[in-house]
């Protein structure tokens, strides 16, 4: 238990030091690609530089939306909550516009694809989110934020087997992200127990059992990155 708590503290502590953008989805503001002269007149921006500008603008909208959603969760009344949620959705839509433009300006911009997926998922467009997550992962198969958030999109679509595969990929490559996904999986189990929809109860039960097993294994075994800092 102490180790589990330790992992939780480590994960939350490391997240606390990240900028809001990173905490939200893994993306962080990008410095513009170099190549501009410091002497006037300023040269015309390349599409890559324009993409970075749109990306950074998108992250600002997204961070604002995430903050509004947090505020909504703590709202004193249903009316206030709905109002804040509506505002958040508008900010997410602005983020989507900016991030989509970033991916169009620079089709290789996997971070922008991943963060676009995040914003789309938050507006309930899981299919659209999956499409851009797929693109992000195909551009950089090791980009764990996209793997993790794609898995959350799978959960949103009740595609639990694909979410499990993503977890295993993260478990060996990025344990922090794997832990994050496991929490999302636990949330999915709770939600589906309350609202099973068209899912068979056995499916939820089986997945819940799997999540429990993996949580126990994760608690027992430290990750490689943890070992680097471990006091023996």
């Amino acid at each position: 238990m102490q180790r589990l708590l330790g992992i939780a503290v480590l994960v939350s502590a490391s997240f606390a030091f990240l900028p809001p953008a990173l905490r939200a989805s893994g993306g962080s503001s990008m410095p513009r690609p170099s190549g501009t002269s410091s002497m006037p007149p300023a040269p015309r921006k390349t599409p890559e530089q324009e993409a970075v500008d749109h990306y950074n603008a998108g992250l600002k909208y997204r961070d604002k939306a995430v903050a509004l959603q947090k505020e909504a969760a703590q709202a004193g009344s249903e009316k206030e909550r709905a109002k804040l949620e509506k505002k958040a959705q508008k900010e997410f839509e602005k983020a989507i516009d900016e991030l989509r433009t970033a991916t169009e300006k620079n089709p290789m911009f996997y971070q922008a694809c991943s963060d676009l997926g995040f914003a789309l998922r938050k507006t309930g467009d899981y299919a659209g989110a999956l499409e851009v997550y797929d693109r992000a992962v195909s551009l950089n198969p090791a980009y764990s934020p996209a793997i993790e958030y794609r898995a959350e999109a799978y959960l949103g679509l009740d595609r639990v087997e694909e979410a499990k595969k993503a977890y295993m990929a993260l478990f060996t490559g990025d344990r922090g992200r794997a832990d994050e996904l496991l929490q999302a999986m636990k949330g999915w189990v709770e939600k589906r127990r309350a609202e099973p929809g068209t899912l068979a109860p056995d499916t939820v039960q089986e997945f819940s059992r799997w999540v429990g097993q993996r949580e126990e294994l994760a608690g027992q075994t430290p990750s490689v990155s943890e070992l680097q800092q471990r006091k023996w």
Partner: peptide
């Protein structure tokens, strides 16, 4: 401990 189930390990990128 760790993936080798032994004492401290060294690998690429590890402190």
């Amino acid at each position: 401990g760790g993936f080798t189930l032994s004492g401290p390990v060294a690998f690429e990128g590890a402190r």
